[in-house]
């Protein structure tokens, strides 16, 4: 995994609640056996009309908006555990998703793939949406090291939570497997004490 560095970017607003992973990447695109290329079908059924015509009303087809940050309504990533959703967002070019609330499994999957889920208050989320609506080129700064999210225009900053272990992994480009392989002895010791039937 690549080391996660702080960055400044504009953001894409998706002010819809309960966006499930079937919308992020529909099941019919889960037949691939590698992790790459899912960005092409990100939000497929919202992005394209029947006949593969880009839907002009969908935000990702509006050239006014862009950036490495996706801002979405509450309960983002609910539903299926498919990690393909995180892969698709990352593959498309997103490095952070901002919402007032994330579904558990999606959150874990995102963190395992260099995609940072940033939880903000519902009030701040509305403020961010308004900010982008007023000026689609508004810039935001994501600083994982200091756990800070900043609206650059106004300088308004907010701190966000991230699990200390996952933060360490992201900043250093480690993954969980490296860690788990390093503690094999204690896993075997645990097994030796486990009662089995």
């Amino acid at each position: 995994m690549k080391k996660y560095e702080s960055f400044v970017s504009s953001a894409v607003p998706l002010p819809i609640q309960e966006i499930d992973t079937d919308q992020i990447i529909p099941a019919r695109f889960l037949k691939a056996t590698t992790r790459e290329g899912f960005g092409e079908n990100l939000f497929r059924d919202w992005r394209y009309l029947p006949g593969n015509v880009p839907n002009p009303d969908f935000i990702l087809n509006d050239t006014v908006y862009g950036g490495e940050i996706l801002v979405a309504g509450k309960n983002f990533g609910c539903g299926s555990s498919r990690e393909h959703a995180a892969w698709a967002l990352y593959d498309f070019g997103f490095k952070a998703v901002i919402s007032s609330f994330f579904a558990d499994i999606f959150k874990g999957n995102a963190l395992n793939n260099g995609l940072l889920p940033i939880t903000v208050s519902p009030k701040l989320l509305d403020e961010i949406f308004e900010k982008i609506e007023t000026n689609p080129k508004s810039q935001f700064k994501v600083d994982l090291e200091n756990q800070k999210f900043t609206i650059l225009d106004t300088g308004k900053s907010t701190s966000f939570e991230v699990d200390p272990y996952k933060k360490m992994c992201l900043l250093n480009g480690y993954d969980d497997i490296d860690y788990l392989l390093s503690i094999q002895d204690s896993i075997e010791a645990f097994e030796a004490n486990q009662v089995t039937f």
Binding site: I177, L180, Q184, I187
Partner: peptide, 30 residues
Amino acid sequence: GDSHTSTHGAFGAIAFGIGTSQVEQVLCSQ
């Protein structure tokens, strides 16, 4: 690697869905 793994909880088990990175974790370390 399926969110409906919770089904098995009916037997008084802790059962939950995981992503593919975690499938890899379990395969390599249980």
